[in-house]
Design a protein around this nucleic acid. Structure first.
Length: 278
DNA sequence: ATGTCGAAATCGTTTCGA
């Protein structure tokens, strides 16, 4: 089972690229961020033509998330208040459309577009920190459901030096500052692990390259798009890769897709043995 | 080197966010 995340920076502008990529890779689930479109204008039919069902939670110009799935999407939830009902803080953060979640093959998938924060001295940075604290409460509430959990998306945070091309210069700045790293690490806790790092310990693996300053041509990127798995799911992970070549498309998004290969639903022992023998 | 994108309004150029 392939589960992917991709910040497309406008679904309408990237529609052909998304459809081509679905055709090429055939992921079971594609989680999109920055769709930048109000729900009535989401290109639903165009994606259904590829054999997918879709659900989305968007707004004009900014933000917006969507799930594109070959399997039934069950118990779809929108925003942080989807898990924290009648919660004024969650409702406040729900004004920006950044969270959509569903059960896919019994996995609770939570697709996130974490606020960028703009700059350390910006009100948007405060918003980012408080949004993450609210996400922490959301995940605490979610934990009570006892569903196998996968949270993924554009986190707008590089957690470690190996996740940025120039840690000496960039550490401490936006997307690499101590407070945002601390709050993300704290909400992940012991319950969620960055599956990419199970397979790839080295630096120089990026998921985002700024449009500016020739960042792509010079390979000056950041790894800010993440897939986190709960302990129960982690043992079924077969691989996790960044589709770097997609950033090289004509008129690309500034992000590349990240794809998790999960052996799910788990094979029984007999099947596993058969596969091993082959 | 805040150098480029995408979207919307202030509309055919400027602004905001990233």
């Amino acid at each position: 089972m392939l589960i992917a995340t991709w910040n497309v920076n406008s679904i309408r502008t990237r529609l052909t690229q998304v459809k081509d990529w679905l055709e090429e890779v055939k992921p079971d689930l594609l989680c999109l961020q920055e769709t930048k479109v109000d729900d009535p204008f989401f290109p639903k039919t165009a994606l259904e033509e590829n054999g997918y069902q879709v659900c989305f939670h968007g707004q004009k110009s900014y933000n917006g998330v969507a799930l594109i799935s070959r399997h039934p999407l069950k118990d779809i939830r929108f925003g942080l208040s989807g898990e924290l009902p009648n919660d004024s803080q969650a409702s406040f953060f729900g004004e920006q459309k950044r969270v959509i979640s569903a059960l896919v093959k019994d996995i609770r998938v939570v697709n996130l577009y974490v606020p960028n924060g703009s700059a350390l001295n910006s009100e948007k940075y405060t918003y980012k920190i408080e949004w993450l604290q609210c996400l922490n409460r959301y995940l605490n509430a979610q934990a009570k459901r006892n569903e196998p959990l996968c949270i993924l998306g554009d986190f707008n945070i590089a957690l470690e030096s190996r996740d940025i091309h120039n840690p000496e210069r960039l550490t401490g700045g936006i997307m690499a500052s101590e407070p945002e790293r601390k709050v993300l690490n704290s909400l992940l806790g012991e319950r969620l692990q960055d599956v990419f790092r199970i397979f790839e310990p080295e630096t120089n693996h990026w998921s985002w390259w700024d449009y500016r300053s020739g960042a792509w041509e010079r390979d000056k990127g950041w790894r800010i798009d993440h897939i986190y798995l709960c302990e129960e799911l982690l043992r079924y992970a077969k691989g996790c890769e960044i589709e770097k070549k997609i950033r090289g498309n004509a008129q690309p998004s500034d992000h590349a897709p990240v794809v998790l290969d999960l052996n799910w639903p788990p094979m029984d022992e007999e099947e596993e043995l058969d596969t091993f023998i082959q």
